[in-house]
């Protein structure tokens, strides 16, 4: 440890838990663990995809009507926002590996901002107008101009699927914020960027799920 006024950044002396033989082994183990956790997240959405597929099979008209109510321009905008956030998240790993700390911090914040934009757009331009019009799930449904009796079910599927996805976006944003706090303390760099990698994987998964949700909900008519 130096006694100079500026401390060496923490990433230059990465520690690892004592039951691992090396930092590289801990990094690999953390990655495998994260992929296993991503597996569980995908299977959580599997139930929602299954419900969607089953009900689309049973009520094609209702689901076709339902997808027409959705604005695919907003959906496309949200998709592109998430894709860009995925790009900045992947770049974060690159910047950590190349010790570009300022770009790392900026990209982390930009990713959070993209997530916030996604949620805001969804809330302000999709959920709130639709809810106000009475397009609500199940027994809360009040929209008077529905043409198919099973449209409330479409809205149930829509709200649960996008709602649970938005919850994951929120969780991802919080996790990235903690990584940002660590980055400010100089925790991440070429010697140690495990946290960035792990949270990055989670964020990419959130994006991956949206990549499939978007055509299923908005584009298939």
């Amino acid at each position: 440890m130096s006694t100079a006024p500026t401390r060496e950044p923490a990433w230059q002396h990465p520690t690892h838990a004592e039951h691992y033989r090396s930092h590289a082994e801990e990094f690999d183990a953390c990655k495998i663990g994260m992929w296993l956790f991503l597996t569980t997240e995908v299977l959580l959405f599997a139930g929602l995809f299954c419900a969607y597929a089953i009900f689309r099979m049973k009520y094609p008209t209702a689901f076709s009507n339902g997808s027409h109510y959705l604005n695919s321009n907003i959906g496309m905008l949200n998709t592109i926002i998430l894709l860009v956030s995925s790009y900045t998240m992947a770049s974060c790993i690159r910047y950590a590996q190349l010790n570009e700390q300022r770009k790392l911090r900026f990209s982390l914040l930009f990713t959070i901002a993209c997530g916030a934009a996604f949620i805001l757009i969804k809330f302000l331009f999709e959920y709130m107008p639709k809810w106000a019009q009475g397009k609500r799930p199940g027994y809360l449904f009040e929209y008077p101009f529905a043409t198919d009796p099973h449209e409330p079910l479409w809205w149930s599927v829509y709200y649960t699927t996008t709602g649970i996805h938005a919850a994951h976006v929120l969780i991802g944003m919080i996790c990235i914020f903690f990584i940002y706090l660590g980055a400010r303390r100089g925790k991440y760099g070429p010697g140690h960027y495990t946290g960035v990698e792990i949270v990055g994987l989670y964020w990419h998964l959130v994006d991956l799920i949206w990549i499939f949700l978007f055509p299923l909900l908005y584009l298939i008519h």
Partner: peptide, 26 residues
Amino acid sequence: PVIGITALLLTFERLFHVGIFDPSMG
């Protein structure tokens, strides 16, 4: 995870009556 989503959907059905498991809603 599948029991996780099942529990969530059951909760939504119970609290908000979304209709995924209710034949009267399809």
